[in-house]
Each structure stands twice: as C-alpha cells, then as structure tokens.
Design a protein around this nucleic acid. Structure first.
Lengths: 152, 152
DNA sequence: TGACTCATGTCAGCATTCTGACATAGCCTT
DNA sequence: AAGGCTATGTCAGAATGCTGACATGAGTCA
C-alpha cells in the first residue's frame, strides 16, 4: 500500500538483500577465521598484500573498505607481531610499501583456505553462468553508485 | 600463481565484489541520509517498523543485522526523541511491540524517498530481468551460507 | 507441579572504527 | 622558483557496535 508512494519494500529491495547477503557472508567468514585467531579485516589485509606486494597503508585501507586511520592501527599490530614489514623510511613520497613476512605468508595460507571453503559453499547452488552474471550485475551497481549523474 | 593453490583472487571473487558493492551502497545511503540527520541503522529501523508495525527489539535487531543490545540503545534514543513508542509493559511475554509515531512516520517519509533515489540510481543500468536474476542469486547465496552441509 | 530450555530486555565494559587535525612529500600551475 | 593542491602517515578523541552477564517470562517435559 505504500511501496509506490515513498516506502522501500524490504522484501524485494536489492539493496536490503545485498546487505543481508553481506552480513551472512561476513558472519560465515568470522566463524572460520576465529579458530585461526584472525578477523576479517586482518585476513583481507594479508590477502591483498599477497596479491599485490608493496601496497601502502592508504591503498590497503581502500582495498579493505576501512579508513586509513583504522588500517594504520591494524598494520602497526601486524608489524609488531611479525606478519608484515615496512621500511623505516619511504623510498619515494611518504607511502611505506608493506610486505608479508614468511610468518605472514604461512598464516595467510591457512586463512585463505578457510575463506575459500566459505566462498565455495556460498556458490554451491550456482552455475558458472549465474556467477558470471552476478559479477556483471554487481559491477554495474558499483559503477552507477559512484557516478553522480552522467555515465561515460 | 596462487589462485588455484590457496589464494582467493580478489579480482574475480564474488565475496569481495559483494563487500565492495555493500560498502559503496552504504556510503551512498549515508550521504543522502546525513542531511536529514539520520544514520543507516536509524533509517532501517524506521522502515522496518513502517512495513511491520509492532516488531520487538530483538526482531528489529535481526532485521537490521545488529545485536539486540545495539538496537536497544537505538530504540531508547528513538523513543526519547519521539519517533517511536513502546508500551510500559509487555502484552505477552517480555517482547515490547514498537510502533512509529506520526513524527516518526513524517521523518521516515523523507528518508525513504532519499534512499529510494539511491536504489534507483544503483539499478539504473540493469533490466528488470537482470534485477530479478540478481535477487535469485543472492537468495541462493544466503541459503547456502546458512546451511552447514546439506541442502533440502 | 517443578525443572529445564529458550527467547527477550537491559545493564556494564570492551573493542573496533570513524572523525578531526596536523605535518610532510610530490605534482602542477604560474 | 614559488605557491597551491592532493595524497599520505600518524596521533588523539568520539562514536558506534559487540561480548558478557543477569533477571524475567513462556513453553516443554517428566
């Protein structure tokens, strides 16, 4: 009675469904990472560094969707515990390239396998075509949300 | 070199893409709700109450993906500011049915229109069929993640 | 009837993240 | 060469959400 007026029907809203999926996925990841003593942001940071070594604090923050201040706190802890290393001085500019240590790599290996199992479970009922379509759809949503009015 | 070993390729991972989409959507919602003096959880609570009046604290918490403790804090603020009302005593059990006040309804109307515009923008590049397929896919993911092993 | 289990509301303390602010390094324009 | 602009790293304080804990009410089962 109000969906066409001003309300947002939560039962069919893709935004709501997106939030729900993200919430359930996060809970599932936390469940498998907890036994390894790792949080989701913790893991995301290591995974990002494995694939793109030398990322700076700010770049890691953008890649894990937190502020650079939060990432800074995390990186200091990871460095203190020997999972990553950063040079004392920046080779260029102010950005400090971060790299995994052997210990960080070992820790990531276990976490990555656990997270992969969660993703496999999440996709278990979907065909390759459906997964590919989902990727295209999500990328379209991101693109539309990032552009205020026009689209190029 | 490691995607098939233990790594999760963030460039194609649906989980990562899901998190990114959710993050961008949340930022867009915050941007339009901030001028109205409302947070996303604040809005979600009111929207939920508009569609399903009489929800309890715990039910609202589940519907907005926060703990019942967090929702309790929010509800106390909303009640104090006159957006919702709760009976002093529970009609049955301990659950207190919450309802929007006229003021809450007015406040929601503006917020709902703003959020709807964000969702419209998000879906602007998608056909109805693509949106429907996305809903089906997301629901499948949620279902798979919630069931430990079997699926019925 | 009484014990057990479960869900709820609520309080207190803790953890994590964010906002605000500042100094510095590189780039671009003049 | 100098000024302005942007990005970065970092510190401090505030806000938000979560975990732990407790008491209460309802349903279940012996």
């Amino acid at each position: 009675m109000s969906q066409d007026d001003a309300g947002v029907d939560l039962g069919t809203s893709l935004g709501y469904l997106l939030k729900e999926t993200s919430s359930v996925l996060r809970a599932a990841m936390e469940a498998v990472l907890r036994p390894l003593g790792m949080t989701v942001t913790h893991y995301s940071c290591l995974e990002l560094l494995a694939q793109r070594p030398g990322l700076s604090n700010s770049e890691l923050a953008r890649g894990t969707f937190v502020t650079r201040q939060s990432m800074n706190v995390l990186l200091q802890a990871l460095e203190r515990d020997g999972y990553v290393t950063r040079p004392a001085e920046a080779p260029v500019g102010k950005a400090l390239p971060t790299r995994l240590t052997p210990r960080g790599r070992r820790s990531l290996a276990k976490a990555s396998a656990a997270v992969r199992s969660v993703e496999v479970r999440m996709l278990s009922g979907l065909t390759e075509a459906e997964q590919s379509a989902a990727r295209t759809t999500l990328r379209s949503m991101i693109r539309s949300l990032r552009e205020p009015e026009e689209e190029g």
